[in-house]
Design a protein around this nucleic acid. Sequence first.
RNA 1: GUGGUUGUAGCUCAGCUGGUUAGAGCACCGGUUUGUGGUACCGGGGGUCGUGGGUUCGAGCCCCAUCUUCCACCCCA
Length: 447
Amino acid sequence: MQKASLVKGTRDFGPIQVAKKNYIFDTIKKVFKSYGFAPLETPSMEKIETLTGKYGEEGDQLLFRILNNGDILPKAESNFDSNRALKSAISDKGLRYDLTVPFARYTAMNMHALKMPFKRYQIQPVWRADRPQKGRYREFWQCDADTIGTRSLICELECIEMFDKVFSALNLPVVIHLNHRKLLEAIAIHLGFEGEFEAFTVAIDKMDKIGFDGVVKELESKNLDTSKFENAQSLLTTFDFESKQLKDLDETLTSVLATQAIKDLSEIRGYYNQLDNDIVLDTSLARGLSYYTGCIFEVKLKEGGFGSVAAGGRYDDLTEVFGVKDISGIGISFGADRMYDVLEDLNLFPQEMSKMTDVLICPMDKDVFSFALQTARKIRNNTQQSCLVYPKEGKLKKQLDYANALNAQYAIIIGSEEVEKNEVSIKNLNSGEQKNMDLTQLIELLK
RNA sequence: GUGGUUGUAGCUCAGCUGGUUAGAGCACCGGUUUGUGGUACCGGGGGUCGUGGGUUCGAGCCCCAUCUUCCACCCCA
């Protein structure tokens, strides 16, 4: 016999967990649909060359590769000068790392049929060969919405609104962090890091974690000149997302790049009045994925938890590697598994998630089965309630126990007395209240 | 990928410096009550102590390996 076990960093979802997960998916889906996004699904696996080189060196290492079928040994026996060469000889497929790149691939292949701007949403699992931690899985679900084929800043606004709506619908207070890649570049140049943009962003992205002094140390450890960095603290921080702050920032930076970014941000700011959640301009936000070129977002929990529960940004050249130029796009992604964990921790899933049925019918002996089944049929055909007949007679205690385990709202008790009077005994399992009535009254009650 | 950490019944854990048949609470099952649950009482099942080696007269406890968990770094949802 073999011990049953799971692959590291993966998990099962039982009936209640699936209901909870669907609650998250449904909430997100509803918002996506209300903004006119249409569904798309792509295969779990992609050609390895579709995936590699899109997420940087680190990302490539985290790709799950699929071993080729057939006789790989002769190939493997040849001399390869590197792991990389060997890998590509024995594996030409991989599991998708995110949903954005498969979408770019899809777009490139279907340009002829897509009416721009094209808006799609996609809710599917992705895989990363990461070392698992809390809130960090090797298989997890992303919920993406992207708009491509337009540079309109209305899309940025929609992203912000969708973040706001989803988290507000889930009763999960968050802070939406907003930044602009060009603003970040302008700041980098202003602080003397021209040509060292990557190292600069990697360092300042850790601001909230290691603090200002930590960032200085990090930069120095990479032999970067931090002489102009002393006035950076007031520049790399979170600002209220208001026009006054934007104007001040523009005046401090006085560069073309900064002005472009501020213009975008001001326009977006002009499009809305009130959100349920907080939003800040966070100039220390530097999303790692290198394909972003405009606005970038990250949604963080107001209290504790993981790094971020949702993120996104604008990218200009994602389809270019597939031969399709000048398609600007913007997309966001919700991390369903992290959201699941937080909602669980904070006990924010609605009560009915654990309800397996609304009504349990309890037949006392075999003679009443047909009456019980008839009652069930009536309930199913005439009400919205789900209904289940306990498939074995006897022991009311046992049956009521079962009803509790299923979190049912009503138990309908049917014995020979009830059949004789052509009625049922219905018990409200929350209040304990119980009364007898005929089937017409029962349907009326359950409607 | 680097450094650390964890692993005892379904769950949360106890188990003294290695010493006879490994414990508790909760959960589960049965009964008290063969037609009334979620609160009471009585009883019961269930563990090759993550796995594989080793040291020892003897290992849940020590050593090695491996897997798993969680944490930090890296990166990220």
